[in-house]
Design a protein around this nucleic acid. Structure first.
Lengths: 204, 204
DNA sequence: GTCTATATGGCGATAGAC
DNA sequence: GTCTATCGCCATATAGAC
């Protein structure tokens, strides 16, 4: 259910703020730069959003919603666990490759203001419980090895998110600073991550 | 080979700057806060390090050296690959658990100024080539499955680094915001990461 | 709603006494 | 080497015309 981005000023501000904040972070972003990006002036930013903090919070909540999307749309309940993990990896990698700044942005800001993070989590009702219950059920039915489902989920998230978050570094160190080569590597991972995980958890 | 931290002013500044910079980042850090942490005044910071930028660069280089430590001290050449991976995981996790701010700090700053990052990498002569060659040799001798050694290494780093970098978030979402529970989880990973990896790559 | 002009505060950096 | 006092700039935020 995609929101329709209207061509009004508020939407232009939100899009500009998203661009600048995710790249520079709260501390590094400048209201002037956001205004330039939106093609307006600083005063108008304060007219629509009272302060930089308020504007940031709007962006953060939106980004958070995006990076913790509705899990049910990823994982259809009737498919076998192999399929679920394959689909989840591929879709999530695609999402991050389209928004490569998001992971590092989130990691940065959750360290800067953990209390605000906690409030966002609460207000948005993120419930990993459902996902963990599904994994536990798969373990109970003998499809995959018995383990702490949190560990499995965190392993999966690590393999997907870290290579994007650390992209600039890994690209330089392992791929001769060639963006195309690194993007190909990330694209391959859409499949290899699932393979890698499944080799570890499938009951032989 | 640990440097002896002398009790002189320069060392006090470096330690204070490290504390503040790794927690707040370059943009969020304040010279006043560093001075307070060091028990001196702002002017003295500029006396020892000309500018905030210079002080930051000193800290960044030091931290970078720490997080890309001499690999040879981790991995003794005569041991089997299973042992090498176990030792590497455990030692690296210990290092990060003692310095939980480092991963997020590095991820933040490498995005802020990729060119400075590249210059640090060059000047410090980081050579993952040696490590990749070792992995490739293990594959050639049939110990582990044939794959892109970069993929294996990046998977290993992902599983180690991400859970620390995203610690504050994962702790809230999966561990009832209990720091002790989360630390126990990380401690368990010192072993489970190696197990997880080895299940995927060992030739049966 | 949108703009220009300006107030207000904070921060990096320096001057200069000791 | 270490301090106090201060400069000068820049960023957020507001006042007020249109």
């Amino acid at each position: 259910m995609e929101e329709i981005r209207k061509d009004n000023t508020e939407e232009k501000i939100l899009e500009a703020a998203r661009t600048v904040f995710t790249k520079k972070g709260m501390d590094g972003a400048r209201m002037q730069e956001i205004a330039d990006e939106a093609g307006i002036n600083k005063a108008l930013l304060h007219y629509y959003f009272r302060s930089k903090q308020k504007l940031f919070e709007a962006i953060f909540s939106h980004v958070f919603k995006q990076i913790f999307p509705d899990i049910r749309s990823f994982i259809q309940a009737q498919k076998p666990i192999e399929e679920k993990i394959k689909i989840f990896s591929a879709r999530y990698m695609e999402l991050l490759m389209l928004n490569p700044y998001l992971p590092a942005f989130l990691l940065r800001e959750l360290q800067r203001d953990p209390e605000f993070l906690a409030s966002v989590i609460k207000s948005q009702g993120v419930n990993p419980g459902e996902l963990l219950t599904m994994l536990k059920a798969e373990m109970g039915s003998g499809q995959i090895k018995n383990m702490d489902p949190r560990e499995l989920l965190i392993n999966l998230l690590s393999l997907i998110i870290f290579p994007v978050a650390a992209g600039p570094l890994l690209q330089i160190m392992f791929f001769g600073d060639d963006p195309d080569a690194y993007n190909e590597f990330l694209t391959r991972r859409k499949e290899t991550i699932a393979t890698f995980i499944l080799h570890s958890i499938l009951v032989k």
